[in-house]
Computed example of a mutant assay.
Amino acid sequence: MLLVPGLETPRPEQLSPEARSVGRDGDVHLVFPADSPAVRAATHAQDGDLPAVLEITDVAPVSVPNRIRGRAWLSGWITIVPGVVEPGRVMVRLELGELAVDDLWGAEGVDPDAFAAAAPDPLAEYETELLQHLHSGHGDQVRRLWRLLGEQRAAAGADDRAVPLALDRFGLRVRFTRGGEGSLVDRSFDARFEFPEPVRDVAGLRRAMHRLFDATED
Protein backbone atom coordinates (compact mmCIF):
# COMPACT_ATOMS: atom_id res chain seq x y z
CA MET A 1 0.00 0.00 0.00
CA LEU A 2 1.14 3.53 -0.80
CA LEU A 3 0.46 5.66 2.27
CA VAL A 4 0.27 9.42 1.74
CA PRO A 5 -0.06 11.58 4.89
CA GLY A 6 -3.41 13.39 4.96
CA LEU A 7 -4.84 11.36 2.08
CA GLU A 8 -8.20 9.86 2.94
CA THR A 9 -9.68 7.01 0.94
CA PRO A 10 -12.85 5.01 1.61
CA ARG A 11 -11.24 1.75 0.47
CA PRO A 12 -7.66 0.82 1.44
CA GLU A 13 -7.29 -1.34 -1.68
CA GLN A 14 -7.32 1.88 -3.73
CA LEU A 15 -3.83 2.54 -2.38
CA SER A 16 -2.44 -0.80 -3.62
CA PRO A 17 -0.57 -0.46 -6.94
CA GLU A 18 -1.48 -2.81 -9.76
CA ALA A 19 2.19 -3.23 -10.63
CA ARG A 20 5.55 -2.12 -9.31
CA SER A 21 9.12 -2.14 -10.53
CA VAL A 22 12.50 -0.68 -9.61
CA GLY A 23 14.39 1.62 -11.97
CA ARG A 24 18.14 1.65 -12.48
CA ASP A 25 18.45 4.61 -10.11
CA GLY A 26 16.61 2.77 -7.35
CA ASP A 27 13.38 4.72 -7.67
CA VAL A 28 10.23 2.63 -7.42
CA HIS A 29 7.64 2.87 -10.20
CA LEU A 30 4.02 2.15 -9.27
CA VAL A 31 1.09 1.74 -11.65
CA PHE A 32 -2.36 2.88 -10.50
CA PRO A 33 -5.74 3.44 -12.15
CA ALA A 34 -5.89 7.02 -13.43
CA ASP A 35 -8.66 7.91 -10.97
CA SER A 36 -6.96 6.51 -7.88
CA PRO A 37 -6.39 8.75 -4.84
CA ALA A 38 -2.62 8.31 -5.13
CA VAL A 39 -2.61 9.61 -8.71
CA ARG A 40 -4.80 12.57 -7.83
CA ALA A 41 -2.55 13.47 -4.90
CA ALA A 42 0.65 13.17 -6.97
CA THR A 43 -0.88 15.19 -9.83
CA HIS A 44 -1.53 18.15 -7.54
CA ALA A 45 1.80 17.95 -5.74
CA GLN A 46 4.23 20.77 -6.43
CA ASP A 47 7.92 20.28 -7.17
CA GLY A 48 7.80 16.62 -6.18
CA ASP A 49 7.56 17.39 -2.49
CA LEU A 50 4.67 15.08 -1.62
CA PRO A 51 5.92 12.54 0.97
CA ALA A 52 4.70 8.95 0.86
CA VAL A 53 5.53 5.52 2.26
CA LEU A 54 5.20 2.28 0.34
CA GLU A 55 4.44 -0.50 2.83
CA ILE A 56 5.09 -4.02 1.57
CA THR A 57 3.96 -7.17 3.40
CA ASP A 58 5.62 -10.47 2.49
CA VAL A 59 3.31 -13.46 3.06
CA ALA A 60 4.55 -17.04 2.84
CA PRO A 61 3.04 -18.89 -0.16
CA VAL A 62 2.56 -22.05 1.94
CA SER A 63 0.30 -22.70 4.90
CA VAL A 64 2.21 -22.18 8.16
CA PRO A 65 1.51 -20.58 11.52
CA ASN A 66 2.20 -16.82 11.33
CA ARG A 67 2.43 -16.58 7.54
CA ILE A 68 3.82 -13.03 7.45
CA ARG A 69 7.53 -13.38 6.71
CA GLY A 70 8.34 -9.71 6.83
CA ARG A 71 7.49 -6.10 6.12
CA ALA A 72 9.31 -3.29 4.38
CA TRP A 73 8.78 0.46 4.40
CA LEU A 74 10.07 2.57 1.50
CA SER A 75 9.81 6.26 2.28
CA GLY A 76 10.27 9.15 -0.12
CA TRP A 77 8.42 11.50 -2.45
CA ILE A 78 5.99 10.76 -5.27
CA THR A 79 5.56 12.37 -8.68
CA ILE A 80 3.74 11.47 -11.88
CA VAL A 81 5.80 9.83 -14.64
CA PRO A 82 4.93 11.51 -17.96
CA GLY A 83 3.53 9.29 -20.69
CA VAL A 84 0.78 6.73 -20.96
CA VAL A 85 1.39 3.29 -19.46
CA GLU A 86 -1.85 2.04 -20.96
CA PRO A 87 -5.31 3.56 -21.26
CA GLY A 88 -6.73 4.36 -17.85
CA ARG A 89 -3.42 3.77 -16.03
CA VAL A 90 -0.80 6.17 -14.67
CA MET A 91 2.71 5.51 -13.39
CA VAL A 92 3.82 7.14 -10.15
CA ARG A 93 7.50 7.44 -9.23
CA LEU A 94 8.56 7.04 -5.60
CA GLU A 95 11.94 8.71 -5.11
CA LEU A 96 13.47 6.91 -2.15
CA GLY A 97 14.84 8.63 0.91
CA GLU A 98 14.77 5.88 3.55
CA LEU A 99 14.18 2.14 3.65
CA ALA A 100 13.57 -0.25 6.54
CA VAL A 101 13.00 -3.99 6.67
CA ASP A 102 11.67 -6.19 9.45
CA ASP A 103 11.79 -9.84 8.39
CA LEU A 104 12.97 -13.33 9.33
CA TRP A 105 16.55 -12.08 9.54
CA GLY A 106 15.81 -9.16 11.86
CA ALA A 107 15.00 -5.44 11.63
CA GLU A 108 17.34 -2.89 10.09
CA GLY A 109 17.59 0.07 7.78
CA VAL A 110 18.74 -0.26 4.17
CA ASP A 111 20.92 2.28 2.41
CA PRO A 112 19.10 3.60 -0.71
CA ASP A 113 22.30 3.39 -2.76
CA ALA A 114 22.79 -0.24 -1.73
CA PHE A 115 19.16 -0.92 -2.67
CA ALA A 116 19.68 0.64 -6.10
CA ALA A 117 22.82 -1.42 -6.69
CA ALA A 118 21.36 -4.74 -5.49
CA ALA A 119 20.74 -7.52 -8.01
CA PRO A 120 17.49 -9.49 -7.81
CA ASP A 121 17.78 -12.96 -6.33
CA PRO A 122 17.72 -15.45 -9.25
CA LEU A 123 15.16 -17.61 -7.45
CA ALA A 124 12.75 -14.82 -6.52
CA GLU A 125 10.64 -15.29 -9.64
CA TYR A 126 10.19 -19.00 -8.93
CA GLU A 127 10.13 -19.05 -5.12
CA THR A 128 6.37 -19.52 -4.74
CA GLU A 129 6.25 -22.45 -7.15
CA LEU A 130 9.41 -24.03 -5.71
CA LEU A 131 8.23 -23.82 -2.09
CA GLN A 132 4.85 -25.28 -2.96
CA HIS A 133 6.55 -28.09 -4.88
CA LEU A 134 8.88 -28.87 -1.98
CA HIS A 135 5.95 -28.87 0.43
CA SER A 136 3.65 -31.09 -1.63
CA GLY A 137 6.17 -33.34 -3.39
CA HIS A 138 9.08 -33.62 -0.96
CA GLY A 139 7.45 -33.27 2.44
CA ASP A 140 9.14 -36.34 3.93
CA GLN A 141 12.58 -35.18 2.78
CA VAL A 142 12.00 -31.69 4.18
CA ARG A 143 10.91 -33.20 7.49
CA ARG A 144 14.10 -35.28 7.68
CA LEU A 145 16.16 -32.08 7.66
CA TRP A 146 15.70 -32.04 11.46
CA ARG A 147 18.60 -34.51 11.50
CA LEU A 148 20.92 -31.66 10.44
CA LEU A 149 19.92 -29.24 13.18
CA GLY A 150 22.85 -29.80 15.51
CA GLU A 151 22.16 -28.06 18.84
CA GLN A 152 18.62 -27.24 17.72
CA ARG A 153 17.88 -30.92 17.22
CA ALA A 154 16.76 -31.26 20.83
CA ALA A 155 13.94 -28.80 20.09
CA ALA A 156 12.66 -30.87 17.18
CA GLY A 157 11.71 -34.45 16.52
CA ALA A 158 11.03 -36.89 13.73
CA ASP A 159 7.27 -36.41 14.11
CA ASP A 160 7.40 -32.63 13.80
CA ARG A 161 5.60 -30.90 10.98
CA ALA A 162 8.13 -29.22 8.69
CA VAL A 163 7.14 -26.62 6.10
CA PRO A 164 9.57 -24.90 3.69
CA LEU A 165 9.09 -21.23 4.49
CA ALA A 166 11.58 -19.23 2.42
CA LEU A 167 14.06 -19.94 -0.37
CA ASP A 168 16.81 -17.85 -1.91
CA ARG A 169 20.18 -18.34 -3.57
CA PHE A 170 21.88 -18.76 -0.20
CA GLY A 171 19.68 -21.42 1.37
CA LEU A 172 16.36 -22.77 2.60
CA ARG A 173 14.42 -21.83 5.71
CA VAL A 174 12.07 -24.41 7.25
CA ARG A 175 9.48 -23.93 9.97
CA PHE A 176 9.19 -26.86 12.37
CA THR A 177 6.05 -27.26 14.48
CA ARG A 178 6.46 -29.44 17.53
CA GLY A 179 4.28 -32.55 17.60
CA GLY A 180 3.28 -32.46 13.94
CA GLU A 181 0.05 -31.36 12.32
CA GLY A 182 -2.99 -31.60 14.56
CA SER A 183 -0.96 -31.73 17.76
CA LEU A 184 -2.22 -29.94 20.85
CA VAL A 185 1.28 -28.54 21.28
CA ASP A 186 1.69 -25.28 19.39
CA ARG A 187 5.39 -24.46 19.40
CA SER A 188 7.19 -23.52 16.23
CA PHE A 189 10.70 -22.47 15.35
CA ASP A 190 12.60 -21.73 12.15
CA ALA A 191 15.82 -23.37 11.00
CA ARG A 192 18.05 -22.12 8.20
CA PHE A 193 19.92 -24.57 5.94
CA GLU A 194 22.67 -22.82 4.01
CA PHE A 195 23.88 -24.02 0.62
CA PRO A 196 27.64 -24.63 0.22
CA GLU A 197 27.69 -21.76 -2.30
CA PRO A 198 25.08 -19.40 -3.74
CA VAL A 199 23.03 -20.96 -6.53
CA ARG A 200 22.69 -19.12 -9.83
CA ASP A 201 19.60 -20.75 -11.30
CA VAL A 202 17.01 -23.48 -10.82
CA ALA A 203 19.41 -26.14 -12.11
CA GLY A 204 21.94 -25.15 -9.46
CA LEU A 205 19.18 -25.19 -6.85
CA ARG A 206 18.26 -28.74 -7.84
CA ARG A 207 21.83 -29.88 -7.24
CA ALA A 208 22.03 -28.02 -3.93
CA MET A 209 18.77 -29.54 -2.70
CA HIS A 210 19.92 -33.05 -3.64
CA ARG A 211 23.08 -32.52 -1.61
CA LEU A 212 21.06 -31.22 1.30
CA PHE A 213 18.65 -34.15 1.27
CA ASP A 214 21.48 -36.67 0.79
CA ALA A 215 23.15 -35.30 3.93
CA THR A 216 20.16 -36.46 6.01
CA GLU A 217 20.92 -40.06 5.02
CA ASP A 218 24.49 -40.04 6.39
Rank of each mutant, 00 (worst) to 15 (best):
D27A: 15
G83Y: 03
R200N: 11
T9W: 07
D102Y: 07
D111K: 00
R173L: 11
L205K: 05
S75Y: 06
V81R: 14
L104I: 12
F195R: 02
N66R: 15
L172Q: 00
L96Y: 10
T43F: 10
L130T: 09
R178S: 06
M209F: 12
L7N: 06
P51A: 01
T177Y: 01
G6F: 10
G76R: 02
L184I: 03
V4R: 07
L149D: 12
D218I: 06
L2G: 07
W146C: 02
D201P: 05
L131A: 03
H133S: 13
E127S: 02
V90F: 06
E197T: 14
L149F: 02
L212Y: 00
A52I: 01
A154K: 13
E151W: 08
E217A: 09
L123I: 03
S75A: 11
R207P: 06
Q152M: 06
L130A: 10
F193I: 13
V110L: 10
M209V: 15
G6P: 09
S188F: 12
R200W: 08
L184K: 09
D159S: 14
R200P: 04
R147P: 08
R69M: 15
L54S: 03
A166F: 15
R69H: 11
L50D: 01
Y126G: 05
V85L: 06
G88E: 04
V92P: 07
V31P: 04
T216M: 03
V39C: 04
I78H: 06
G139N: 04
L184H: 09
E125D: 13
L50C: 07
V53H: 00
R207A: 15
D102F: 11
A208L: 04
T57I: 10
D111E: 08
G88K: 02
F170Q: 12
Q152W: 10
L7H: 09
D159Y: 08
